[in-house]
């Protein structure tokens, strides 16, 4: 009896040692980011490096906000990502509902087009879409970064369609008999039913849009229009050796998404978990 419990204690200790060791590896870069962001320039270039700044220099953050328009970057990111998530979820849900539940001409062709698009890497469409937006005079505006979302995405339509297929058509027909329009049925019955799938799509869209570097890089030329990723890249180009300043910038860029992640971690993790089970 005793050896058994001793063995299980040993196993538990081993388990937690492993868990903590991995956690250290996963989290250390963020701790190092935070620590460097509070160091003076001289302290950052000390060797051997100190893990804690002697006296935290919160002034680095003040300097960051006066060096580059960090607040503008942040607001641009919020605006672009917010519009992208809302637009993509709504228009993908509309098309997915139509494809899953309604008989209309061209339905099969649209679905085939969706599957085909899923196979093509986005770099193939990058250049033609860039040229198109340039002709529309949308270079150096936010439009190219969020307007396409309002026309749905193949991934979103595919994901939600699979979910809507599981809803019996009788439900739709019954609501129709009760005098609800198909549009009303989508927003009042199907969307609430599809909350888990919508959460998955919203999480993916949010992460992709918030963290996107390539598109802002090719469309945005002026600092006032940049979202956080492009802003950080700009900061790196301008102040490449001022590590405390850059780490402060990186901190500011990850804090909003970390807060949202901690608050909504269940949706994040479950959303991604289900994407693999399709």
């Amino acid at each position: 009896m005793e050896t058994r419990s001793a063995r299980s204690v040993a196993a538990t200790v081993c388990l937690y040692t492993a868990l903590v060791a991995v956690a250290l590896i996963m989290v250390f870069p963020f701790l190092w980011m935070a620590s460097t962001s509070l160091k003076s320039l001289g302290e950052a270039f000390e060797y051997p490096p100190a893990f804690f700044p002697k006296n935290p220099r919160w002034g680095n953050y003040e300097r960051l906000f006066s060096t580059v328009p960090m607040t503008t970057f942040l607001l641009n990111s919020i605006k672009i990502t917010g519009l992208t998530v809302v637009g993509l979820v709504i228009s993908s849900a509309m098309a997915a509902f139509a494809l899953a539940q309604l008989q209309f001409p061209g339905r099969r062709v649209v679905f085939m087009g969706t599957l085909g698009t899923l196979m093509v890497p986005y770099q193939v469409t990058l250049i033609p879409v860039f040229i198109m937006f340039q002709y529309l005079g949308w270079k150096n505006t936010h439009y190219p970064l969020w307007v396409p979302a309002f026309f749905g995405s193949a991934f979103g339509v595919f994901l939600l369609r699979q979910f809507f297929l599981g809803v019996p058509r009788e439900l739709y027909e019954a609501a129709l008999v009760d005098g609800c329009s198909p549009g009303g049925i989508l927003f009042r019955i199907y969307l609430p039913l599809a909350k888990p799938a919508i959460a998955t799509l919203a999480v993916f869209t949010f992460m992709n849009s918030w963290n996107d570097l390539l598109n802002p890089l090719i469309y945005i030329d002026t600092m006032e229009k940049m979202p956080l990723t492009a802003g950080l890249s700009f900061l790196q180009a301008q102040h490449g050796s001022n590590w405390p300043l850059m780490m402060a910038g990186a901190m500011v860029s990850i804090i909003p998404i970390l807060v949202i992640f901690i608050v909504a971690q269940r949706s994040f993790i479950e959303g991604i978990a289900t994407s693999g089970l399709k």
Binding site: F104, T114, T125, G152, V157
Partner: peptide, 23 residues
Amino acid sequence: RLWGLLLSAPYIFGLVVFALGPI
């Protein structure tokens, strides 16, 4: 038919203008 086309219209437009056309 009516609602199917109506609800998928934005997506069909996007599919043509932002995906298939550019490809």
